[in-house]
Design a protein around this nucleic acid. Sequence first.
DNA 1: CCACGATAATTACTCAGACAATTAGGTTAA
DNA 2: TTAACCTAATTGTCTGAGTAATTATCGTGG
Lengths: 249, 249
Amino acid sequence: MSKTKSPAVPIERERQARGTGRRLYGAIANKLGAAILSGEYQPGDVLSGEVVFSEQLDVSRTAYREAIQALAAKGLVESRPKAGTRVLPRSRWNLLDPEVLGWAFAGQPDIGFIRSLFELRAIVEPAAAALAAERRDNAALDTMRDALARMTRHTLATEAGRTADRDFHSAILHATGNDALIVLNASICAAVNWTTQFKQRQRTLPRNPIPDHRRVFVAIADRDPAAASEAMRVLVELALEDTRQAMQP
Amino acid sequence: MSKTKSPAVPIERERQARGTGRRLYGAIANKLGAAILSGEYQPGDVLSGEVVFSEQLDVSRTAYREAIQALAAKGLVESRPKAGTRVLPRSRWNLLDPEVLGWAFAGQPDIGFIRSLFELRAIVEPAAAALAAERRDNAALDTMRDALARMTRHTLATEAGRTADRDFHSAILHATGNDALIVLNASICAAVNWTTQFKQRQRTLPRNPIPDHRRVFVAIADRDPAAASEAMRVLVELALEDTRQAMQP
DNA sequence: CCACGATAATTACTCAGACAATTAGGTTAA
DNA sequence: TTAACCTAATTGTCTGAGTAATTATCGTGG
C-alpha cells in the first residue's frame, strides 16, 4: 500500500520570479510536474488532499486544482472523490507533450529516455525526409535553405545556431504536410537540443554537422526521396553516436 | 480581425447523462474540444469571456475555467488577461493526445488527417516490430499470443475482437521497451479503431486480417527483425488500402 | 509625422468559504 | 461467501469579491 505522500513544503508565490505570462497555477503545475517526472512522486502514490496540499504550498485550492487539471490533461495524475489524486502509471503519461518533455529534462534526464527519443528520431526523421522530398514546395525549401544558412553562419556553439538547427528539422517535418508528424516536432527538437547540449558540455565538438545537413537539403531539393532518407539516416546515426560518446565518460 | 465567437448556447449539466467518473468540467472540456476540432471555433477565434460563456453554459466560472485549463494543457487554447482566451493555431494542438484524437473523430473526421495517422503507422509500426523482434521477452510474447488467440476467436466484428487487435499492436510497442514509442500507442490504437470501424460501416469485410497478424507474430517469435518489419509493413499497407476503399464511395 | 511613456479599461487570475456529489471501504444481512 | 447498505472522506461545484496582468488609448515630446 503506497502511503500518502507529503510534499517538500516549499513555497511558490514569488510572483515576479516567474517570467512574464506565467501564472500561479502554471508555477504549481510546473513544480508538481517536475517532481513527478523526477520520480519524487512515484506512480501509484497518492498526493495529500487538496486542502492540505494547497495550504502547504500557501496557495488557494482554486489555483492548486487548476494546476492538477493541467497535469491530469497530460495523463500524469487522476483524481477521484474519496480516493484522492494519484500519480498514474508511466504508460499513461503524455511523454511527447512539450511541457512534459521540459519537466523530464528539468532534473537529471534519464539516459534510457534520451536513447528512446533518439530511436524515435531514427525512425521518424528519415521517413519524414523522404516524404518531404516528394511533397516539398518552394516556400518550404526556402525555409530550409534559410535555416541552413543561419546554422552555417552562427555554428552550433551559439543559441542562434541551435535555433537554426531546430528550424531546419522542423521545416522538414512541416514539408511533409502530415499533421501527425508535425506534432512530433517538439519531441524531435528536444532530442536535437540534447545532442548539441551534451556535445557542448563535453567540449568535444568533433564533427562539423553542416555537411550532413546539407546532404539532406540537397536531396530534398532534388526531390530524391531515397537519397533524402539515407542522408537523414546517416545524420541521426552520427548524432546518436556523438551523444552516446558524450554520455559515457 | 476575428470577432468574438458566441457559443451555440446549449446546456450541459444533465449530470446523470454523462457516464460514471465524468465530471462537469470534463463534459465542458469535451464539448469545447469537439467544437474546436470540428472547426466550429477556428484558430485565432476569441471565446467570449469567462463570465458570459459560463453563464451561457449555465455552469460556474470555476467549472468552466477548469475545462479551459485542460484544453490549454493540450495546446488547443491560450488565455491571457485582457486579451481573452483564443484558439491556438493547429500546429500547436497536441493531436496525438488520446482525448484530442477522440474529439477529432467525434465529428466527421477529416480524411486527410486519417491518412496522416496511417502514414505515421506505416512509419512507426514496422520499425517497432523490428525492435520488438530483437528485444521481446517471453512475457511480451505471451501477451501477443493471447491477444492473437482472442482476436481469432472473436473476430473483428465484436468489441472483444477489436480490443484484442489493439492489445496485439500495443504489446508490440511495449515489447520495444521504448517509452517514446509506447506513448504513440494511443494514437496508433485510434487509427486501428477507425480502420475496423470504417470497414464495419461498409459491411465489406473483405480480407481476413488474422494471417497478416500471425506473420508478424511469428517473425517476432523467431527474433527476425527484417521479417517482422516487412510483415508489419504489409499489414499496415493492406489496412490503409481497406480503409481508403471504404472511404471512397 | 512618428516614437515613446503614462494612463485607463478590460480581462483573466486568485482568493475564501460553503455546500453538494461521488465513491472507497467497512458493516450488516442474506 | 456474497450482496446490499451505510458512512465518512475527498473531490467537485458554486458564489462573490478583489487582485494583477495586459492591451489599447491618449497625450506628450522629439
